[in-house]
Design a binder for these strands. Structure first.
Lengths: 213, 213
DNA sequence: GTCCTCGGTTATAGGGTGTAACTCAAGCGA
DNA sequence: TCGCTTGAGTTACACCCTATAACCGAGGAC
């Protein structure tokens, strides 16, 4: 968007095809999950033969990396937008849940079982820090509880960009993350499927515990 | 173990080879995760050629099913043993965490991202119910809080074998599950890796919230 | 001792990642 | 405008995987 404007027709074409590949990749991912993502299948759907895609993504991992980057970006934007429109922790939680239900495999791509050989590049963790920063900002009202975890976090807080946030806020931001992920990932993985209760109500109540206890 | 004792030498051999295959499968799983599980590689390590394994497991999914069944069985035994030796919810949580850290991929096999085409057979959900039953038993001291989720769970409780357990206990058992899984799965997936704090302390504090708030 | 069951084999089909060698058109500078 | 170069796309191939088919041979059952 804001990169060098010296885009000749060659680069424009390249960028467009790259985007089209990613589009097909998202569709395939949403349908069958990251494990079923196949460069060859994407190529076939685009009407070209397998190895052609390697001009645009050097490997399957590189394509997956691009997807992960976009997913983190999308989540960070969603959370940030909710925060800036005045949402509290509960509002953020619902924004995250909606984002996850919109494309469950996209959530699992980030927070699901990591793919065996894959190692995330540094910039993706930078984007996930962005999410953390918003969570901490939304948690700043948290009162100090005096529990040992807060003393521990006060000494291991380099992951928090906000150097002035009280340890209680760090703890609450982590609680947000782990509890939202706990309910959400079990729901997305289908573990509540046969149980009959409404996952949304469990989610609501769990989120309520964040600000209550 | 307690099945028909009319085991001729043929069946004995078959069972032994089947067990050996599963053993190699567990090693391969622990090393590289379920996605990297390969029947051919197991066969090679056992000194026989690929298709021979299909005499023992009709498909890759069937082998994975056997692994999942054993994993559930092992987890249920672990939780039950902790419960019977007098452990409270905190004790159960630590038993689960130890079990998970002992073989992270085994935990992820059950509670991680589901494999695309796979559908769990009914008996595995039966074993997971066993875990739930113990959790509910350990949660029976939970006091009624009057929150709406409890009314909801009181009407959707067919997943709880214990028909006399108060709704507050059902809620607490679910909280145990979702919160333990929330912290544990993020830890196992490496999402706390660069953050510096001790996952064990976060786990402890999170478990403490179960009985406190 | 004969038969048949069953474990093992090779061959093969089909799908996947990724590389190598080649072709051909489009862009670019002179 | 003309050539040269760049790069997109192709086929062929090596190597992984799952899974099936056809076949062989030994061991158990009677």
């Amino acid at each position: 968007m804001s990169t060098a404007e010296t885009t000749g027709p060659r680069e424009r074409y390249r960028a467009q095809v790259q985007a089209e590949i990613k589009q097909h990749a998202w569709e395939q991912l949403a349908a069958d999950g990251v494990a079923a993502l196949s460069l060859k299948a994407i190529a076939k759907r685009m009407g070209m033969s397998g190895p052609a895609l390697y001009r645009y993504y050097a490997s399957r991992d590189e394509l997956i990396t691009a997807l992960i980057r976009d997913a983190y970006r999308s989540l960070a934007d969603t959370v940030r937008a909710a925060h800036q429109s005045g949402a509290d922790l509960g509002g953020l939680a619902h924004a995250v849940r909606e984002w996850a239900l919109e494309d469950p495999q996209r959530y699992l791509l980030i927070y699901g079982t990591p793919v065996p050989g894959y190692h995330a590049p540094a910039d993706t963790t930078a984007i996930s820090n962005e999410v953390m920063t918003v969570l901490i900002a939304a948690s700043r009202r948290a009162a100090n509880s005096g529990r040992p975890i807060e003393a521990h976090l006060a000494q291991h807080r380099h992951w928090a960009d906000d150097r002035s946030a009280p340890a209680a806020a760090l703890r609450q931001a982590l609680a947000f993350w782990t509890r939202v992920h706990g309910v959400l990932s079990l729901e997305l993985a289908g573990h509540f499927a046969g149980m009959g209760f409404d996952p949304a109500q469990l989610f609501d109540d769990e989120v309520a515990t964040l600000t209550r206890g």
